[in-house]
Design a protein around this nucleic acid. Structure first.
Lengths: 349, 349
DNA sequence: GGCTAGATTTGGATCGTTCTAACTTGCGCA
DNA sequence: TGCGCAAGTTAGAACGATCCAAATCTAGCC
């Protein structure tokens, strides 16, 4: 191929047609594997395609056919391993379906999210998977995405007033049930003084997890002391710094359900610094099962959300929506699974 | 906006033009902020754009202008945090330049790489950033990418025979210099018996790192025993299993430069199992500075490659290439930086 | 040979935008 | 009055594919 590439002008249908004495229409049919063209013609055209090194211009085709061959994926933070896995899962399915993934990362900034959405939408994706930035507004998002592009929300809800006719699909994690499982696990081990540690209550996922914790405590008839709820930024560093607050009053907790793994790791670090030994005299659970969770010492009991599988699932849901735009909006809550490791010990006798 | 959206037909220039009694050309000029249109006309058109909820069709524009507004990014494994960071860096710069990122992940399979490249290239990206899968072939890659799309290789070389007129840009890490720094650091601490542990010599990055180690040893006049080179798969598990080989003969090493962090963590695990205490009676260095490195016990001395910055750099290089397609091919070797942590101790007295 | 059914092929319009070259105006000035 | 010029505006042909309806080419059959 490429034998006489003019270098600069791309090879088009017209060149191929001219090159083997058929019409553009015929070449187009060959490209799309139509049964209408004669075997010999097809062979001749295919040879010419190879000879000239033709590459299909899908944008032109999409323009004419009024179709799309891409899916946009906007995540709040691609560098976060959780979302990287998610993106990998999305791309896997999207690619297998013959679509291409348009990527955007928002760094948790609603302003950047608006810009990214605006830019992506101009490329006419067939659908959009969005893991909203913290604090992004439903009305604004809908305004730039428009009603024509199917939208699937992952992991978080949109903030602000919901417009009346808001219809999009949702794939969320079962935060509440997950935190409840973790709490029940600690209760079953014999703990009664269990804290809920980390995160901020203005994040919806944190509220849901906290609610799950409270539900489990209530169901077990366990009292909850006010100082057992310690808020902090969802980072290892801030978590470690906030540990003293847990022991500021009596009764001190003997275990903590953490907002997520980062916080849990920070908590364990802070505990060690105070002379405690997590996994021996204090039980800890996390959420997410990030890579470090299994490697920490002690290894962290946590909830696995299987982000890659979630990515595949999200892509699948969106593809189904493309097939049937009229179907009712779906709301899928994916279960999470408790993995018990050494960090969740029974209370000291 | 969106007041009377026909739902199904998208709003085009023609609709706007008709809606406010000007020609398509004028609307087009307004969209592109041309100074040619009269202030009042512009205002009228802009109002109509908002009223009808117009969204720009960049694909159509690209078709006519014969330009592109996307950059393709193909990585061998997006779920790997190193490449996720890299991708985030790429997207940051690509997005800021008004382009969109087309994403593809190959799962280290040259076959999938071919498929992904073929699919992406049909969308006519302005350029392509590729971190090749292990074992992907130069001739094949060039055949599907074509000569028209600028190519930037990251992190790895392409295998196979290089075609005569192979011109692409390259951004690589300074593997050799990095390993040399690590080795010199151990030498400076007083070690003389230093092993090179892990990786396979058929990977180019491993060969480069090994060469850096040898150069440092040679420069210091330190002898190198044959059993100090232990090959293993670049995984924690296999590394831990191969530890005994280091001590199979005398003199036993007192330190090891490892192929990467995964291997280094495995080595430390294996050492502990054998009754050694890494960071006290055996010094270890890694490569990559993965997230776990700082959290391991002891924290791992390693080389940071700053993948996010590399992503930004790669995107920048490609954008420069788009601006000046004729410039000579560039080959940038990004330096890596040694971070000293507790795993690299001086030899026991 | 004329006629028809089926198999192939094709010209020209079209998708939504931009580009080119030309077309209006209005105004100042000889 | 007529002319040139600048400022605004626009018709119509692209870009590279697909769709549609119509054209062409077989055979087969009476």
């Amino acid at each position: 191929m490429d034998t006489n590439a003019p270098l600069g002008r791309k090879v088009t249908l017209r060149d191929i047609a001219a090159g083997c004495g058929v019409s553009r229409a015929t070449v187009s049919l060959v490209l799309r594997g139509s049964p209408l063209v004669h075997k010999d013609t097809r062979a001749r055209v295919e040879a010419e395609l190879r000879r000239q090194g033709y590459v299909y211009n899908r944008a032109a085709a999409n323009l004419r056919r009024r179709t799309s061959s891409s899916i946009a994926l906007v995540v709040n933070e691609l560098a976060n391993p959780f979302f990287a896995e998610f993106a990998a899962g999305v791309d896997e399915v999207v690619g297998a379906a013959g679509f291409v993934t348009l990527l955007g990362s928002t760094s948790e900034s609603p302003r950047r999210e608006q810009a990214v959405l605006g830019s992506l939408i101009e490329h006419g994706p067939g659908g959009l998977i969005l893991s909203p930035a913290e604090g992004s507004d439903a009305v604004q998002v809908l305004a730039t995405v428009g009603a024509a592009t199917p939208l699937l929300l992952f992991n978080r809800e949109l903030g602000g007033e919901l417009p009346e006719a808001a219809h999009w699909d949702v794939l969320a994690l079962d935060n509440q049930q997950g935190a409840r499982q973790a709490t029940e696990h600690l209760l079953a081990l014999g703990h009664r003084h269990i804290a809920f540690f980390g995160g901020h209550d203005d994040s919806s996922s944190c509220r849901q997890r906290h609610a799950g914790y409270l539900a489990a405590m209530r169901a077990a008839g366990a009292a909850v002391a006010a100082h057992w709820r310690v808020e902090c930024a969802p980072t290892r560093l801030d978590a470690a710094a906030c540990v003293p607050a847990l022991f500021a009053a009596v009764p001190a907790p003997t275990a903590a359900v953490c907002y997520n793994d980062a916080v849990a790791l920070g908590l364990m670090q802070g505990l060690t610094r105070q002379g405690h030994t997590p996994g021996r005299d204090f039980a800890v659970t996390g959420f997410d099962d990030i890579a470090e969770a299994a490697l920490a010492s002690p290894p962290l009991t946590t909830l696995v959300a299987a982000p890659r599988a979630r990515g595949r699932q999200a892509a699948q849901m969106l593809l189904e929506r493309l097939r049937d735009p009229g179907a009712a909006a779906r709301r899928v809550i994916a279960p999470v699974q408790l993995v018990v490791r050494a960090s969740s010990c029974p209370p000291l006798a």
